[in-house]
Amino acid sequence: MKLLPNCITLSRIGLALLLLCFEPLGPAFTLVYMLCGITDMLDGPIARKTGTVTRLGAKLDSAADMTLAGTALYTLYPFLGLTLGLGLWVLVIAMIRLASILTAMCKFRTYGSIHTYGNKLAGLLLFLTPLLLPYVNLEGWTIVVCTIATLSAMEELILLLISKELQLNRKGLYMHQKRSS
């Protein structure tokens, strides 16, 4: 039972890589993609309920999230119809995320991605994107997702820059200010 949350998280990494084997947006792809979402919803609550929350689990969760996001972006890029401007915006978001990873590595000597509410919302919107492709105005949806992703990436970078210790489960910048008061 102690390893169950980490096994669920590791399965998301495997499932995300399995997406590369299927036709994007086909039935098998959609099924595996949904399984990725289910594992993402289960691992944290199971770890909290069983008292098995660990730094390793939090890091694995972040790595699984990045693997899924990267794999989904790679496989779905042709369907997203990104203009040059939106493509550059996605690149800027990725660079801010990379700056956060490098900041955590340099400052705290470890990989760290903070589980803020903003990051959770950005992750949810990114997860929903392939499922909503047939139903949304793609450019409008992309602007909303990129705006939330930019704000959450900037919030995380600011938190990493101002924090004295790495707290992976900090909920947001406001919570940091509130705790400091």
Rank of each mutant, 00 (worst) to 15 (best):
P130F: 10
A16K: 02
S152Q: 03
T116G: 06
G81H: 12
M154K: 02
L76P: 08
M34Q: 13
F127G: 05
P45S: 15
T103P: 00
L56Q: 01
L133S: 08
V145Y: 01
E23I: 15
Q167W: 05
L124E: 00
L42P: 14
T71D: 07
A72S: 14
V144D: 12
S100W: 00
L3W: 10
M66C: 12
A153D: 00
A69H: 01
R179F: 12
R109Y: 02
F127Q: 06
I101W: 06
V53W: 02
L161T: 03
F127H: 03
L19K: 06
L166V: 10
Q167A: 15
S180H: 10
T71E: 05
N137S: 06
G44S: 02
L20Y: 05
K120D: 09
K107S: 06
Y111K: 00
R12A: 11
D40C: 07
L124W: 01
R55P: 00
S11H: 04
L42N: 06
I143G: 02
V53G: 03
P134Y: 06
K2Y: 12
A69Q: 01
G14W: 09
E165N: 07
M154I: 12
I158H: 08
L68W: 04
S152N: 02
L76R: 10
P27K: 08
L17S: 08
G85H: 03
M34V: 14
F127V: 05
L86A: 03
P130R: 05
A28F: 12
M154P: 08
F79T: 11
A16T: 07
L173S: 12
N119A: 05
L157V: 11
S100F: 00
L17N: 07
P5H: 07
L102E: 06
M154A: 11
Q167I: 15
S181E: 14
G172R: 12
L18D: 03
L15K: 04
A47L: 14
K59T: 02
L126H: 07
T54I: 01
L126S: 05
P134K: 06
V90D: 03
L132C: 08
Y77N: 03
T147H: 01
I114D: 02
T39Y: 08
Y111S: 02
A47C: 13
W141G: 00
A72P: 03
L151I: 15
F79N: 11
T116R: 06
N169V: 00
P134Q: 09
L19S: 07
